[in-house]
């Protein structure tokens, strides 16, 4: 009896985690490994056979100018998203939590958060009207203020990617702001009172109390924002399809187009491998920099 119960105890936890392990294995880890394998082949979705090309896909990738464009676009996405969705969002959050704004903070909080609730697909379709050179809101406003030749936004290779980035900030900043608000509400009021008694002004309180206290949350938002920026697909694909030309292509859009429009499955896998490496490297760097989980 005793031994049987002990046997059950040994097995029980494994039985509980089994479904999760199977699902993760089938949908995450096996495809991940298979992707490395596929990247060494050249094949189309139609062909029953794959031809082995070794590292040829990686060589093509290094000399492919579109990959360069895509990477630069992703880096812009990353820089601007971190500046706005992490740094600016933290500033907004601390302002909203400040006594100065206590009367209207609920309204503002809701306002900032509302875009998050709209699906990215809908947002991109809406923004295609906002950016429209003929009937768009932005150019109508610019023309009203006397601008003769307002930009073509999504139609100009110089502005297309920034059109997508700005839209993405509008959509997502409310979410990170909300996360920071939650984090700030968790900071003990005593700290602020003590600082106030010591004569610290608002800026000093922000810098010496708020920022260090929300470090963990900064880490979380930083990781999601940075990885999000390197994986961004929806926003760009729906707004510009990566065009004009390939000017606003990101790595994910280029991967998708190679796989499903150009039928270069092997090359698409190679791009996916590169994206995986970039995201993992960035996550590790950030993990080390923030020494997450080892809170003071």
């Amino acid at each position: 009896m005793q031994s049987r119960r002990a046997g059950m105890n040994v097995m029980t936890p494994y039985v509980y985690v089994l479904p999760c392990v199977i699902l993760l294995g089938v949908f995450v880890y096996i495809p991940l490994v298979a992707n490395f394998y596929y990247s060494a082949f050249s094949f189309s979705a139609l062909s029953p056979t794959k031809s082995f090309v070794g590292l040829q896909n990686y060589k093509t990738l290094v000399s492919d100018p579109v990959v360069g464009t895509a990477l630069i676009n992703n880096i812009w996405y990353c820089i601007i998203s971190v500046a706005i969705q992490v740094l600016l969002a933290l500033v907004i959050a601390s302002l909203l939590e400040d006594k100065l704004f206590s009367k209207i903070s609920t309204v503002l909080r809701t306002t900032y958060f509302l875009p998050v609730l709209i699906s990215m697909t809908v947002v991109a379709l809406l923004f295609s009207f906002v950016y429209h050179p003929k009937i768009g809101l932005i150019n109508a406003a610019l023309k009203f203020f006397g601008m003769k030749n307002p930009p073509a936004w999504t139609g100009d290779p110089k502005t297309a990617i920034f059109s997508a980035i700005i839209m993405s900030q509008w959509h997502s900043t409310g979410y990170t702001t909300m996360l920071f608000i939650v984090a700030i509400q968790g900071i003990s009021e005593d700290l602020y009172e003590a600082a106030e008694i010591d004569g610290a002004n608002r800026l000093q309180r922000f810098w010496h109390i708020t920022v260090p206290q929300v470090r963990e949350m900064m880490f979380v938002t930083m990781v999601t924002t940075v990885t999000g920026a390197f994986l961004v697909f929806n926003d760009v694909y729906i707004l510009t399809q990566g065009g004009p030309g390939n000017a606003s292509t990101t790595l994910a859009v280029y991967m998708y187009r190679n796989a499903f429009n150009l039928d270069k499955m092997g090359y698409a896998s190679t791009i996916a491998v590169v994206m995986l490496i970039i995201c993992m490297a960035l996550a590790i760097i950030q993990n080390t920099a923030f020494r997450s989980g080892k809170g003071d």
Binding site: Y131, H132, P133, K134, A152, W153, T154, G155, D156, P244
Partner: peptide, 8 residues
């Protein structure tokens, strides 16, 4: 049309 790339 001007800026045809941003018009569908």
């Amino acid at each position: 049309t001007k800026d045809p790339n941003s018009v569908d």
